[in-house]
Design a protein around this nucleic acid. Structure first.
Length: 938
RNA sequence: GCUCGAGUGGUGGAAUUGGUAGACACGUUGGACUUAAAAUCCAAUGACCAUUGCGGUCGUGCGGGUUCAAGUCCCGCCUCGAGUACCA
C-alpha cells in the first residue's frame, strides 16, 4: 500500500496557508536569512516540471535555515509586465491585465500544490500600480541624479546645479555626454530656464537621446535585436529598417568600473561573472589623434596597441563616421556613397554575421602619422563599428589579423615593426617577449615598455592620451509598447519634466487598440486621457492640451527589466505605501543571502539590478551596494522529445529500426504516447491528432519504435511533462525529491520519468518504518548502536550537503539511511523523530504528518535541526603520526571501533605490514574500518 | 576565432578535494511471497580471466609526466556543451 500522499499534502498545504506558518517576522532578534528565487513571468502555458527546480532547491534551504534558527525571508511574486500578454491583447482585444490575472491564478495553484514555504503575505506583481508607482519613483531618482567622477558616485542633480552656479563646468568631473559644451558660471546663469533644463540632460542618469532602433513598418513597431533574424522580423518575415528615434537612455556606463570591481566581492558563479566582465569589456589603451592631409579635420582613434604606432599603414573609418563626407575626394565620391548606402541597408547583426567578406573603399584622402609624419591612406570599411570607441581605427596590418587581411585584400603595404618575426602569412598578434623594431625611439623595447613609452610621448606632443575603453553601452530604456510602466514625464516646450512624486503612480491609461497609432506613435498615443494638467497635477484629456498649463505625457513605456531591477528590495516591505521600503527593514534584511535563478539573465536582469542597486545606494536609499551575496544558477530541465518517421510524400510511418536508406521526415509526437522502451502506442495516435486517422504504419516486431532526442521543453515539441500529473500520481514530496535527485542543481539535464519510482519507493519505505500492518506503530525502546550510527551519519552528511548546496547527494544519504533502518526493522522513536525533522525540508508534507502522528501538536517547521553526535558517527577516520615505508596499502582485520593502539597492534601483527613498518617513520595513517587505506612516510 | 565548463558502467550520476573508483537510483537478470498479477522483500550487475578454493588482470576521452598513491595535479592532443564575436 502506498502512503496516502494526496490527503496528506492537501491537509498540510492548507494548514500552512491558514496559520501563515512561513510569514517572516519583523522585528526579530533572530539572525536573518533572505532566500530569493527569480520571480516568474506568468505565461499562458503554465509551469512544466523544469520550472520548479530552482524553487525546490531554495525551498529546501529556506526550511533548513528555519530549523537552524534563522528568521527566513522567502518571498515570491510575479514579473507580470511583458510581451506575450500584449500580443494576446493585440489579437483578441482582451486587456493584458486580465490575461495576466488568469495566468497568475494558474501559476499560484501550481506553485501551491508543490508545498513551497513562500511568505505569500508579501506577494506582489510588477504590473500593479502599488508596485510600479515605486518603479516610476526610482526612474525619477535617476532623472534627478548625475554622476560625479571626483567622488565616484551618483549625486542629486541639485548639487550639480550648485556647482554650475558657482563655477560653471570648471573643476567639474562628471560622467556626461561626449559633446557636452563647457560653460562658465556666468554663461550658465545667462541661460533661460528651458536652456538650462536641456543642458542638464547631458548629465542626468537617465536622459533623452536619438538612438537607432529596429523599426518594422509592416508590424508598426520596434523590435528588439533578438526579434530580428537575417534582416527581417522573426514574426512575419517583414523588412526591418534602422530608424533613429528619441529614446530614454540609462547612463549605466558610468558604473562600468564599479560593476566590474563589485564582482570580486560577491559569491556568484565564475562563468556568470566572466560573462558580465566580457559584457562590460574593459580595454586599456590610448586615444591617438591623426590630422587629415589638406583638410581641417582630425581623426581620433582608440587603440590597445600604442606600441605598434609605427606599423600603421592606413586608417579605416566606419561607414557612418561623420568625417566620411568631408574628406572624400571627388574621384572617390561615387564609390564611397555607394558603399555607405549599401552598408546602411544592412542591419548591424547582418554585418556581424558576414565576417568573411572583406569590403571597403578608399576615400581618396590621407592622414598624417602623428609621429613619423608619413601620409597614410584613409579607407572606409564596415568591419569598423560606429558604436565602439571612436568609430575609427588606426590599422596595423603586421599586428592585427583583420587589418592584415584588409591590407592584403586591397594591396596596401604592410610594414613589419617586430624584430625577428615572420609576417609572411599572418599578423603577429602575440605580445610576450616580442621586441619592437623599425620604430624610431621604440626600437628594442618590449611590447609593454613600448606601450608606455608611446603613450608618454603622445601625451607630451599632445597627440593622444592613455584611456580605458568599455564595451558596455548606455541602456535604451524606452519601449514602444503598451504593457509596461508609463514613464512619469511630461513635455513642456519639448523639454521633459518629471511628474511629482506625490502624484505617482501615473497609471496606465485605457486604450482601444494596443497597436501603434497611424502616425507611428507608441500605443499610448491611442489614449484619450493622456495629458498633464500642471496646475492641478492631474491627468486630463488630450484635447485640452495648450501651451501654458496642459502638456503631453511621454508615450513610451519602460522595458521589461525595469520592474525586476529592484524587486528584491520591495519584498522587505511589500505593503508600504509611503516608501518603496522602510529603511529599518532594509537595514535588517540587507542583502539577499541566496539568490537562485537561471544564467540566461547574466547580462540583462542581473546587470541592470546591480546598476540600479548602486544608484539607490549612492543616493542613500538602500544600505548595501550589491543586492545578492550568493547566487546559484539552476540548470534547465530538458525534455526528451520523441520522433516518428514519415515516408516522404506518404501517410506511412516507419519504425525507427527500418529506416535505413528510406527518405523520411521526422515528426514530433507527443511523449505521452511513447513508453520507456520508445514503443509508440500508434493505435491511439488518431485520438491525438486527426491527421493520423488514415496513417499506415510499417512496424518491427509489431511495434512502432520512435527515436528520442533531448530538447528544451516546449509545447510545440510535445515533450512537456506537467508537474500536476506527477503530483497526482506520486505526490509533491516525490516530485520535489526526484527533481533534486536528478543531478547537480547547476547542470542541465533531461527529465526522465522512469527513475521516479526510486524516490517514490523511498518515501513509502520511510512511511512504513512508522507503520506495522497499516497501523501506526512506534517503539520507545532504546535504539541499537547500528541504528544510531545510521542516523548520525545521515545527519552529518545531509547537513554538510545542504551547506554545500549539493542536494542530490543529500537525497542519496536519506535513501541509504532508510534502507539500513528497514533492514534493521527500526521503529524506534529516538531514531525516527530526529529523522523526520531532518527530512522535512525535502519532503515537508509527509514529515508534518508523521510528526503529528508522533504526538506533536504544532508544526515541525520551527523544530531545531538535529545535530550529529560524533560518538555515533559510522566511519572513524583516524589520522595520526606513526611510522612506516615502502608500499603503502594494507588490508587489516579491524573492528569499526578500533582504537589507535589496536590499529597499531593489528598493523604490527600483520607480517607484511610489520616488515614495512620496521625502522621507518610514518607521518600519517588514514584508517577506515577494517582497512588501513594509506600510510604516508616522513 | 576567443573565453569558460565538461568527458567516469547499459542510463542519471557519486567519490571526504591526491588516498578502497563506480555510492545512491534507474534498467537488466535470478529468487522469495502469491492461483496469478501488482506491490513488497532478497541476491547479482564495469570488463576480461579463474570459477574444485580464497583470487587475478585491465579499467575514469587519448598520449606523456609528477607521486608510495592520480578520475582528481602538470604538459600536449581529441570530442562535446555554454557564452561571445570584425571591440581596434
Amino acid at each position: 500500500m502506498a502512503y496516502p500522499f494526496r490527503s496528506i499534502e492537501k491537509k498540510w498545504q492548507s494548514f500552512w496557508a491558514k496559520n501563515h506558518t512561513f510569514s517572516a517576522a519583523f522585528p526579530s532578534n533572530k539572525p536573518k536569512y533572505y532566500v530569493l528565487d527569480m520571480f516568474p513571468y506568468p505565461s499562458g502555458a503554465g509551469l512544466h516540471v523544469g520550472h520548479p527546480l530552482g524553487y525546490i532547491a531554495s525551498d529546501v534551504v529556506s526550511r533548513y535555515k528555519r530549523h537552524k534558527g534563522f528568521n527566513v525571508l522567502h518571498p515570491q511574486g510575479y514579473d507580470s509586465f511583458g510581451l506575450p500578454a500584449e500580443q494576446y491583447a493585440i489579437q483578441t482585444g482582451q486587456h493584458p491585465a486580465q490575461t495576466t490575472d488568469t495566468n497568475i491564478k494558474r501559476y499560484r495553484e501550481q506553485l501551491d500544490q508543490l508545498g513551497f514555504s513562500f511568505d505569500w503575505d508579501r506577494e506582489f506583481r510588477t504590473s500593479e500600480p502599488d508596485y510600479y508607482r515605486w518603479t516610476q519613483w526610482i526612474f525619477s531618482q535617476l532623472f534627478a541624479a548625475w554622476y560625479d567622477n571626483t567622488s565616484d558616485r551618483a549625486k542629486p542633480i541639485s548639487t550639480l546645479i550648485d556647482h554650475l552656479d558657482k563655477w560653471g563646468t570648471d573643476q567639474l568631473d562628471a560622467h556626461c555626454d561626449e559633446d557636452t559644451p563647457l560653460l562658465t558660471a556666468t554663461e550658465w546663469k545667462a541661460l533661460t530656464s528651458d536652456e538650462q533644463q536641456t543642458y542638464l540632460l547631458h548629465y542626468r542618469m537617465t536622459y533623452l537621446a536619438e538612438s537607432e532602433v529596429n523599426w518594422c513598418p509592416q508590424l508598426g513597431t520596434v523590435l528588439a535585436n533578438d526579434e530580428v533574424v537575417n534582416g527581417v522580423s522573426e514574426r512575419g518575415g517583414f523588412a526591418v529598417e534602422r530608424k533613429k528615434m528619441t529614446q530614454w537612455i540609462m547612463r549605466i556606463s558610468c558604473y562600468a568600473e564599479r560593476l566590474l570591481d563589485g564582482l570580486n566581492t560577491i559569491d556568484w558563479p565564475e562563468p556568470l561573472k566572466e560573462m558580465q566582465r566580457n559584457w562590460i569589456g574593459r580595454s586599456v589603451g590610448a586615444t591617438v589623434r591623426f590630422s587629415v592631409f589638406q583638410h581641417d579635420a582630425e581623426i581620433e582613434v582608440f587603440t590597445t596597441r600604442p606600441d605598434t604606432l609605427y606599423g600603421v599603414t592606413f586608417m579605416t573609418l566606419a561607414p557612418e563616421h561623420p568625417l566620411v563626407q568631408n574628406i572624400t575626394t571627388d574621384d572617390q565620391r561615387v564609390a564611397v556613397q555607394d558603399y555607405v548606402s549599401q552598408s546602411a541597408k544592412r542591419t548591424e547583426r547582418d554585418r556581424m554575421a558576414d565576417v568573411k567578406n572583406i569590403t571597403g573603399v578608399f576615400t581618396g584622402s590621407y592622414a598624417i602619422h602623428p609621429l613619423s609624419g608619413a601620409k597614410v591612406p584613409i579607407w572606409i570599411g564596415d568591419y569598423v563599428l560606429a558604436g565602439y570607441g571612436t568609430g575609427a581605427v588606426m590599422a596595423v596590418p603586421c599586428g592585427d589579423q583583420r587589418d592584415y587581411e584588409f591590407a592584403t585584400h586591397f594591396s596596401i603595404p604592410i610594414t613589419n615593426i617586430f624584430a625577428d618575426v615572420e609576417i609572411e602569412n599572418a599578423a603577429h598578434v602575440e605580445k610576450g617577449e616580442t621586441r619592437i623594431a623599425n620604430s624610431d625611439f621604440l626600437n628594442g623595447l618590449t611590447v609593454a615598455e613600448a606601450t608606455q613609452a608611446a603613450v608618454e610621448h603622445l601625451e607630451k606632443i599632445d597627440r593622444g592620451t592613455a584611456k580605458i575603453q568599455y564595451r558596455l553601452r548606455d541602456a535604451v530604456f524606452s519601449r514602444q509598447r503598451y504593457w509596461g510602466e508609463p514613464i512619469p514625464v511630461y513635455f513642456k516646450n519639448g523639454i521633459p519634466h518629471l511628474i511629482s512624486e506625490h502624484c505617482l503612480p501615473l497609471q496606465l491609461p485605457a486604450v482601444e487598440k494596443y497597436l501603434p497609432t497611424e502616425t507611428g506613435s507608441p500605443p499610448l498615443g491611442n489614449a484619450i486621457d493622456w495629458a498633464w494638467d500642471e496646475t492641478n497635477e492631474t491627468v486630463v484629456t488630450i484635447d485640452k492640451i495648450n501651451e501654458k498649463t496642459i502638456f503631453p505625457i511621454e508615450l513610451n513605456t519602460m522595458p521589461g527589466w525595469a520592474g525586476s531591477s529592484w524587486y528584491f528590495n520591495r519584498y522587505v516591505d511589500a505593503k508600504n505605501n509611503k516608501a518603496f521600503a522602510d529603511r529599518d527593514k532594509l537595514e535588517y534584511w540587507g542583502k539577499v543571502d541566496l539568490y537562485v535563478g537561471g544564467s540566461e539573465h547574466a547580462t540583462g536582469h542581473l546587470l541592470y539590478s546591480r546598476f540600479w542597486q548602486k544608484v539607490l545606494f549612492d543616493l542613500g536609499h538602500v544600505p548595501v551596494n550589491e543586492f545578492a551575496q550568493k547566487l546559484v544558477n539552476q540548470g534547465m530541465i530538458l525534455g526528451e522529445s520523441a520522433f516518428i518517421f514519415r515516408k516522404s510524400g506518404t501517410q506511412t510511418y516507419v519504425s525507427a529500426g527500418l529506416i535505413n536508406g528510406i527518405d523520411v521526415e521526422p515528426i514530433h509526437v507527443d511523449v505521452t504516447y511513447v513508453d520507456a522502451n520508445n514503443v509508440v502506442a500508434h493505435h491511439e495516435l488518431k485520438n491525438w491528432r486527426p491527421e493520423f486517422a488514415d496513417a499506415k504504419f510499417d512496424l518491427e516486431d509489431g511495434k512502432l519504435i520512435a527515436k528520442r532526442e533531448v530538447e528544451k521543453m516546449s509545447k510545440s515539441k510535445y515533450n512537456v511533462v506537467n508537474p500536476d500529473d506527477i503530483c497526482d500520481q506520486y505526490g509533491a514530496d516525490t516530485l520535489r525529491m526526484y527533481e533534486l535527485f536528478l543531478g547537480p542543481i547547476e547542470q542541465a539535464k533531461p527529465w526522465n520519468t522512469a527513475g521516479i519510482s526510486g524516490v517514490y519507493g523511498f518515501l513509502n519505505k520511510f512511511w512504513r518504518l512508522f507503520h506495522e500492518n497499516e497501523q501506526f506503530s512506534i517503539s520507545d525502546e532504546p535504539p541499537s548502536s547500528g541504528m544510531l550510527k545510521s542516523l548520525h551519519t545521515t545527519i552529518e552528511k545531509v547537513t554538510h550537503d545542504i551547506d554545500q548546496f549539493s542536494l542530490n547527494t543529500a537525497v542519496s544519504a536519506f535513501m541509504i539511511c532508510v534502507n539500513e533502518l528497514t533492514a534493521a526493522k527500526c521503529n524506534h522513536r529516538a531514531i525516527l523523530k530526529p529523522l523526520t525533522v531532518l527530512l522535512a525540508p525535502f519532503a515537508p508534507h509527509i514529515c508534518e504528518e508523521l510528526w503529528e502522528k508522533l504526538g506533536h501538536t504544532s508544526s515541525l517547521s520551527n523544530e531545531p535541526y538535529p545535530i550529529a553526535d560524533p560518538m555515533h558517527l559510522k566511519e572513524t577516520q583516524i589520522t595520526y603520526p606513526i611510522s612506516f615505508n615502502g608500499k603503502m596499502r594494507f588490508t587489516l582485520d579491524l573492528d569499526a571501533e578500533a582504537t589507535k593502539d589496536e590499529i597499531e597492534q593489528a598493523a604490527l601483527a600483520d607480517e607484511r605490514t610489520a616488515q614495512y613498518l620496521e625502522g621507518k617513520t610514518i607521518r600519517k595513517m588514514i584508517v577506515i574500518p577494517s582497512k588501513i587505506v594509506n600510510i604516508v612516510c616522513g
